[in-house]
Design a protein around this nucleic acid. Sequence first.
DNA 1: TAGATTGTTAATCGATTAACAATC
DNA 2: TAGATTGTTAATCGATTAACAATC
Lengths: 214, 214
Amino acid sequence: MHKSPKKLASAESLHRLALYHCLLTDFLLCGKKITTSKEIADELDLNESTVRRDLSLTGNAPGKRGIGYDASSLRQRISDFLALPPFAPFAMVGSVAVTNAVFNFFPIEKFGFMPIAFFSEEPGDWGKVLNGHEVKPVDDISPALATMGINVAMVACRPNWVQHSINLLAQAGIKSILILTQSTLPSAPQGVHLAHVRIACELKSLFYFADSKF
Amino acid sequence: MHKSPKKLASAESLHRLALYHCLLTDFLLCGKKITTSKEIADELDLNESTVRRDLSLTGNAPGKRGIGYDASSLRQRISDFLALPPFAPFAMVGSVAVTNAVFNFFPIEKFGFMPIAFFSEEPGDWGKVLNGHEVKPVDDISPALATMGINVAMVACRPNWVQHSINLLAQAGIKSILILTQSTLPSAPQGVHLAHVRIACELKSLFYFADSKF
DNA sequence: TAGATTGTTAATCGATTAACAATC
DNA sequence: TAGATTGTTAATCGATTAACAATC
């Protein structure tokens, strides 16, 4: 018996929902209990209709007419829609130095993530401990992950290790991979969703706006 | 006398042009001299009409009918359109450890970038040398940059330093800033273009695809 | 009740794509 | 010439937004 495929959201709506999730987390930390589509829209520079339409994707009537949205339950609904657990577990591939640096500008706990498996391409890293977990060699990915029920991974190894890491993660049953490393387009194994953080492209396109002719 | 504003490209086209630029760089490194819209489209999983339309933005008839595009001159046209110089200079804000880590998964030289000013929030970093440039305190941003003709910066400092860094970069005349740090929405000073690398949102939305119901 | 804000439909807008004449 | 591929128009598609009845 298998569950019905979920209502599909456009890539745009999906990204905005993740953004609302971050914003609502901030709201809750500030003690804000109620919000409105207008407030969310203003904060994120969006149209309020867009916000309401996106939020409707999470199920029937997430808000109260005349009132707005309960921040806490709305956040929970988005979590459910995204299938995002309270401490979202993921596997991290990259050297200890890179991993520590990434967690320096991306405060994982604050965003509700919990890395529970670490794999490094640097032999000198093997056996070190990060967040209470032993750092393993990249080649240990498959056996080590099989038992842990992790579905998502982040890859920030050196460019020449990217394709190999992706292949092993796929074999280990990982469903989605966020690739931080800038390298020639890796190929996606069947059934695995790859997302790229294209710092190089982002930076290149920024020069367009920095041009004096603009 | 000031130049006319350039033909504006949609955000989508702009990002794809940066992507073509990366791909063409790879092609040239492989010794490939000629390409076609079909080849580019297949490589990047796009429609060939989309590719041709985007490329037309770079000026009159970048290709040759019946033949395709000259990789080298097409890359040059995109560089010109993006206002991307051969060694694109930028300023980097972040600790030495983070900067080194970022350059580990983002090989700047390979992508044609050249960081020529470094600013760290860590007092222990001040005076160290990166890529032949002395690392300065974040608070030195304005005076240090004023003379260098840099228009673009990348920010990967710790979250609580983001807004301060942006403000100083803006004062120093920086036009575009790529923010790697995940923090509460910083506010953009007048006339400055901010771009965010939203690792947290990307990762959150990946759980949607990792869900077994999918 | 009056005021506010949602949920959703219908209208708008803009991006993508098919198609094809131009031409190498 | 015949075959290939561009450049660009016109058609399609889908996302955004305005508008408003529903309702708290």
